[in-house]
Amino acid sequence: MLSALATEPRTRRHTIMQGESEVSSDQRMVLSTVLGSCIACCLFDPTLALGGMNHFLLPTPPEGRGEDRGEAERYGIYAMEVLVNAMLTRGASRATMRAHLYGGANLHEGMRAIGSKNAQFARDFLAADRIQLVREDTGGVLARRLELQPASGRVRCRHVAEHVPDGRPAAPPPSSGHVELF
């Protein structure tokens, strides 16, 4: 079970940017991110002491934008797949994985529905993939600072009052979308 993250010495920190996913079993690793209307999904498999986090901007690409190289990774339909697959390839299973969802704030008047739609997408994805959602801190009007210690599953999520933009987009993986016919 995921629980509150204690501050520990000798930690290795890695910031998860928009469109990025990371999985680790390194006990010194702490994954962190800053979320506005974006969503971060944290997965943890207690049978392996393995966890991971992603960070996505919107559920699916707007019409005509999914083809752009480097864009796709920022959307939940891909980011969730990449995170789940990274866990599976390290030996985790959907039956033993536990999920947390964070973010999805409705920060601005004109963007009221975006955070809520992001959170609903992530809930629906986890349900479709039969991964148990055990904790959720989404919605509201405040940004969040999130930390996950992937090897223990411990999480710390703090609401922050100041304006915090969602983390800048990560550089796209060099191979994503690549087609090679043999």
């Binding site: 999914g66 797949e81 979308g177 690549h178 043999f182």
Partner: peptide, 13 residues
């Protein structure tokens, strides 16, 4: 295999 495509895929490709 006939080919190898890395996710996330480009629908047109």
């Amino acid at each position: 295999a006939t080919g190898w495509i890395v996710k996330p895929f480009d629908p047109e490709k």
